[in-house]
Amino acid sequence: MLRKRIIFALIYSNGYFMQSRNFRLQRVGDISWLEKNYKFKEIAKFLDELIVVDATKEHKDKEQFHKVVSRLVEGVFIPVTAGGGIKSTLDAEALFNSGADKVTINTSIYYRRDVVKEIISKYGSQSVVASVDYKLIDDQIILYSRDGSNREEITLDDYINIVHDLGVGEVYFNSMNKDGTGFGYDVDIINAYSSKFTMPLIVAGGAGNEKHLHEAINIENVEAVATANLFNFVGNGLPNARKYLLDNNVNLARW
């Protein structure tokens, strides 16, 4: 039986890991801080996957980020997805060479579809995760690119068709309204749209505790739940959340 997954997403900017709230970033600590306070190799044993995104607003220092990716994957035996600012196949290649198993692509899904196609043809569908940020405005789902700063005109239905046609392997569906709030996932929207995705769906935005993870992971056609909340899941937060879900018979991998 295919298992559902718990994914931790790390938001990185300019050398530091960030707590994001509605896409406003607050600096938390650098990689040494993360290793010390999160004991990442230990925590990773309770995770199914890891995502790390470079959300530096201007002038991303790619080399520095590649080093962070290499250091993160060391001794972590789960898939790692990396991304942020991928504009070319070479950008993706550099992340794969740093140890990423997949890349996540957001803005280039709107503006550089030929690049996305090229990455997929070279590395396969399973190596590309399309990340889509959305906001609910007057009950309308509005998509945003460029780290949440640029409003896009296409609808979510259009977007789903586009990523389907591109052959993208998975979608990371992220609510900007819920991001970092800890109030729970955008369950109504997820329920309304999860069955439209033809590829595995990762939902993100709003998880504050294990009950939120539980609520979203049980939605049909949701394959994975992600959280980027460094504060709410610090210390034993993730091990305890996994135990809670397993105790509640959620279909997770067991080791």
Binding site: M1, L2, R3, K4, R5, D48, S125, Q126, G169, E170, F197, T198, M199, P200, N221, E223, A224, A253
Partner: peptide, 10 residues
């Protein structure tokens, strides 16, 4: 079922 087959399976 969704393709690709992604995740932990028994």
């Amino acid at each position: 079922v969704k393709i690709p087959h992604v995740g932990y399976n028994q």
